[in-house]
């Protein structure tokens, strides 16, 4: 464990807290992509299958349960709970996620760390997480302006993987046999997708944290 990874996990937890607060207190899922939340639920449920046999630390196991529970709760609330479900707009949030899931599944089958079913599913979840934010970014692009809490949610989510990148660099230089090309590649792509958002987020928040983010 190192500070970058710890801050990355805290930033990830913060993104869940912000989103759960927004949809439960704000009673609205406007501006939030259900498609992205469904992808995250698939990512965590598939990646953390090893919860039952790969016990590397209590910290890991606890957060795996938290991430599966939170992502499932978010999908449930936006899909089934009133009044949130009425604030989700399927016409706007219509990114074809099958074009993300399909290629990631093929990539997971072909490029993984070991030829066991779990490793293929694990690699699939890593690739899928890298592109899971796309429906959300497309929704924000369509709306042009990003509501305040949503912008903090996306920023925390981007920061989490950005901090993980620093964690991988740190581990690469401090540990001798540390090699994780799959997560390095996917994590770089994932963080790269946020660059544009971060630029607009920084520009808008310079004048005050509660200003909405404007996307071109």
């Amino acid at each position: 464990m190192n500070i970058f990874r710890f801050l990355g996990d805290m930033s990830h937890i913060l993104s869940f807290v912000i989103l759960l607060l927004k949809i439960t207190q704000g009673k609205s899922a406007a501006g939030i992509s259900l498609r992205t939340q469904e992808l995250y639920m698939i990512v965590f449920c598939s990646r953390y299958l090893d919860l039952f046999w790969n016990f590397s630390s209590l910290y890991n196991s606890f957060l795996k349960v938290v991430f599966i529970a939170c992502s499932s709760a978010i999908v449930y609330i936006i899909r089934f709970k009133s009044p949130q479900k009425d604030t989700w707009n399927p016409e706007l949030d219509n990114f074809p996620i099958q074009y993300l899931i399909g290629p990631c599944a093929v990539a997971g089958l072909l490029i993984n760390q070991d030829w066991t079913p779990f490793e293929m599913i694990w690699a699939f979840s890593i690739y899928l997480e890298a592109v899971a934010i796309l429906p959300q970014l497309f929704l924000l692009q369509k709306q042009g302006e990003v509501e305040n809490l949503t912008s903090h949610y996306v920023a925390a989510l981007g920061a989490y993987r950005g901090l993980y990148l620093m964690n991988w660099v740190y581990r690469y230089f401090t540990e001798d046999d540390y090699l994780q090309r799959i997560v390095w590649f996917a994590g770089t792509v994932q963080t790269g997708l946020y660059i544009d958002f971060f630029y607009h987020y920084y520009q808008s928040k310079r004048g005050g944290l509660s200003r909405p983010v404007k996307l071109p």
């Binding site: 996990d9 090893d50 790969n54």
Partner: peptide, 10 residues
């Protein structure tokens, strides 16, 4: 170490 043991991150 095996691929499984190397999975110590979330």
């Amino acid at each position: 170490c095996t691929a499984l043991e190397s999975k110590d991150e979330l």
